[in-house]
């Protein structure tokens, strides 16, 4: 534990910030300028958000693929699985109902 460690860890935070910054400015800029058709835009927005969430997990919450972190990663993946089942299921069901109304 020394100054070198501190700098390395601080650099990690700064890299995370930089990546998140880019992944935020990009989508805002594209939406502000317009021009993309909606499906492409939505895919782009979704991809940026997913990558940014991964960046947050990696650099701010320190979740990675190392062995010691496996349990935490599993918990996150399980939560995300349930979230996907619930949220996508809801949107599917309600969308289907809306179409048939």
């Amino acid at each position: 534990m020394n100054d070198l460690d501190y700098r390395r860890e601080l650099r990690d935070y700064l890299i995370g910030f930089g990546l998140a910054f880019t992944l935020t400015v990009g989508p805002f800029a594209i939406v502000a300028w317009g021009g993309l058709d909606r499906p492409t835009l939505l895919i782009f927005l979704g991809a940026c958000a997913l990558v940014q969430i991964t960046v947050h997990f990696r650099f701010f919450l320190h979740i990675d693929l190392s062995r010691q972190k496996r349990e935490d990663l599993q918990l996150i993946l399980f939560s995300v699985l349930l979230l996907i089942i619930m949220a996508i299921g809801t949107i599917w069901i309600m969308g289907n109902l809306a179409m048939r109304m």
Partner: peptide, 15 residues
């Protein structure tokens, strides 16, 4: 148990 909730409202009108 998280994948079956709709069976409580089969008759709500979805396809």
């Amino acid at each position: 148990s998280f994948c079956v909730w709709l069976h409580h409202f089969f008759t709500m009108g979805q396809s």
